[in-house]
Design a protein around this nucleic acid. Structure first.
Length: 259
DNA sequence: CTTTTTCCCTGGACGC
DNA sequence: TGCGTCCAGGGAAAAA
């Protein structure tokens, strides 16, 4: 989404911002956020963990969190929650079926400290290593999957990618985090990277109606090894994929080859 | 302190 | 067909 938004938004000035869903800017007043955004010129479109970061020439930044069903679209959209009207006449629409998404406007000196506090290392960057995981997981009795879902441990990893990553690594999602050995942690690092790289390559998974800003659907769902495959044979060992609940989330894994 | 549970929200799937 | 219930999941908040 960031990659498609970048050429559309960078260099453009927000002429008018319309926020239709008052929950979007919680806890702030949607009218004042819309008024503050109008006139801002987009300097860059970045991503940090699960946050989309629209940085403005003023130094301010809008942090957009899509949660489950949020997304930008060019062209018409159902479940419309906000519209950005640009100085070149185009409209960029924001839709969100379940209304979990958030928009929050930050002052110049506040945005980076906030992002740093919310997010650990980027899994596709250099800071996400077996050594880092070992430090963060040491002594923890919570399931390893729960730690992978902690954004301060691995920025951007969500439920589906955690399951996929642990399948690649051959590690059982309910294992006590502190009991996962150093060799396995290296496998987990590789698994997380592999799952996320594949997801980006395939432009995400379209489970219901997710689409990129240009309307194209993702194809990551065709690459799932465990997610949504409960009862089907494991692609590595043939044992039926199991589904359970770990860290409060639906969790798919292979009882045969994830230990 | 760590870990687990609840809640927010909508709509699709499913049972009766 | 219509209604009730469950499930999906990110993360804040509350509970344990």
């Amino acid at each position: 989404m960031r990659r498609q938004l970048e050429p559309v938004l960078v260099g453009r000035t927000l002429r008018r911002v319309e926020i239709l869903d008052g929950r979007l800017t919680r806890p702030h007043d949607p009218r004042s956020v819309a008024a503050e955004l109008a006139g801002e010129r987009v300097a860059s479109v970045e991503r940090r963990g699960k946050y989309l970061v629209l940085r403005f020439a003023s130094g301010r930044a809008l942090l957009v969190h899509l949660r489950m069903t949020g997304g930008f679209r060019r062209g018409e959209a159902s479940h419309l929650r906000a519209t950005l009207r640009l100085d070149d006449g185009t409209d960029v629409r924001f839709r969100d079926v379940r209304r979990f998404a958030t928009w929050r406007l930050f002052e110049p000196d506040e945005v980076d400290p906030y992002l740093a506090g919310q997010n650990g290392p980027e899994p596709l960057g250099t800071g996400f290593t077996a050594r880092w995981l070992a430090a963060r997981l040491a002594g923890r009795r919570a399931p390893v999957k729960a730690l992978l879902l902690d954004q301060r441990v691995a920025a951007g990893v969500g439920n589906i990618y955690a399951d996929e990553a642990l399948w690649y690594a051959g590690v059982h999602p309910a294992r006590a985090a502190g009991a996962v050995g150093p060799g396995e942690l290296a496998d987990v690092v590789r698994g997380v990277r592999r799952a996320l790289r594949l997801g980006i390559e395939r432009q995400g998974a379209t489970l219901r109606d997710y689409a990129a800003p240009n309307g194209e659907r993702g194809s990551m769902q065709d690459e799932f090894r465990v997610y949504g495959r409960a009862g089907e044979p494991c692609l590595r060992c043939g044992v039926p994929i199991a589904k359970t609940r770990v860290a409060g989330r639906g969790t798919c894994y292979c009882p045969g080859c994830q230990r």
